[in-house]
Simulated assay, not measured.
Amino acid sequence: MPSTPRFAYKADRLKPLRAFCQTARLGSVSRAAEALYVSQPAITLQLQALERELGQKLFERSGRRLVPTRAGEALYELARPLVDGIDTLPTAFRNQLKGLDAGELNIAANSSTILYLLPRIVERFRERHADVRLSLHNTVSADGTDLLRTDAVDLVVGSMHDVPTDLVYEPLHRFEQQLVLPPGHPLADKDDLTLADIGQHGLILPPKRQITWRLVDLVFQQNRVPYTVALEVGGWEVIKQYVAMGMGISILSSICLTEADRGRIVTRPLDRFFPARSYGVVMRKGKLPSPQARAFMDMIHPDLFLRRDYYEGGHSER
């Protein structure tokens, strides 16, 4: 019975996997060699040995670049978190030893999340970890995930519809969509409220980049109901104030409604037409959270992201 070939690099699997990941990232053996401070022949030998052991071609040439084959893409998805985890282990270890009495935590969230969902969580976090410098970045969801990908923030807290494959999303709270009206509005007490009824009145909506605007547009378009936007304005408190002044009606998540709104506006549930919005935590897939981020997530929900495979794809609202 023939024996399985043995390769010298098996004594150190990290080297060929690191060479492979750098080549995949940079598209060039020479650039990978420069990044790793080794010779080009060393990178080539490691890649060849890896291909022999796996029995698959991992790269093909596209113009002047090397691009992963289908097998190479599959290996990259598996190897990248391992290599990144090993390469960042010293820093992560030092941060772990420091504990939570130092360091910083950067969180991206949209205005409604910062205003309505996070205050009590932030208050509890500050009470327990006063030495951690906490920064909340007020962004729309798209900007927040861009900051997450560049490690400018540790977490994104907010709402997501479609979850990109490089991110993981754990929804924690669900809020129904509500129609918001000024007192005495014709739709306030109308029986059998329809989308067509709503579409006849001017809507006050947040800017188009925000999820709410896209959700409203999607529902009306899918039902082929025309509608008009009377005003676009940022900030839910501003929108509610304009509704109370009789400048239009709006559709918003119940997360934005407080006791202070009683009497000045009227709400009607829209669960017949609009799906509930979830709010939760977004992280980069495969990246271990810092101790500070872990502690903040525990304030929201203990063992968050530990209830299922950490490397799974995130939930999607669609």
Score class of each variant (00 low, 15 high):
A24S: 13
A92C: 06
E51L: 07
A19S: 15
I43S: 03
W213H: 15
E77I: 03
I300E: 02
V216D: 06
L50A: 06
I121M: 04
S135N: 15
M245F: 07
E312D: 14
V140I: 11
D84C: 02
I107N: 06
I211M: 01
P289L: 00
L117N: 06
A11T: 13
R18A: 13
A142C: 07
L17C: 04
A92I: 02
R174T: 14
P164D: 02
L136Q: 12
D197W: 09
A295P: 15
T139P: 13
V140P: 14
P291M: 02
D309N: 13
L26Q: 03
S30Q: 05
V225M: 02
H315M: 09
R284L: 12
T69K: 01
P207C: 02
V140R: 06
V180L: 05
D192K: 04
D298P: 11
E237P: 03
S253C: 01
S253I: 05
L97H: 04
P269H: 01
A42W: 03
R209E: 13
D303G: 06
L36P: 13
Q177K: 07
D197P: 12
L203D: 10
R65N: 14
V233G: 00
R149F: 00
L115F: 04
I107P: 11
F93C: 10
G99L: 01
E104D: 10
V122N: 05
V29E: 11
L36W: 01
A49H: 12
L75D: 08
Q178I: 10
N110Q: 00
R277H: 11
S62C: 08
S290A: 05
V180W: 03
F305R: 03
K57S: 14
R25V: 11
Q241V: 04
S111Y: 01
L172H: 03
A260S: 12
V282H: 04
Y242Q: 14
N223H: 15
V67W: 02
N138R: 12
L36E: 13
P302D: 00
R18P: 12
P41D: 01
V153Y: 00
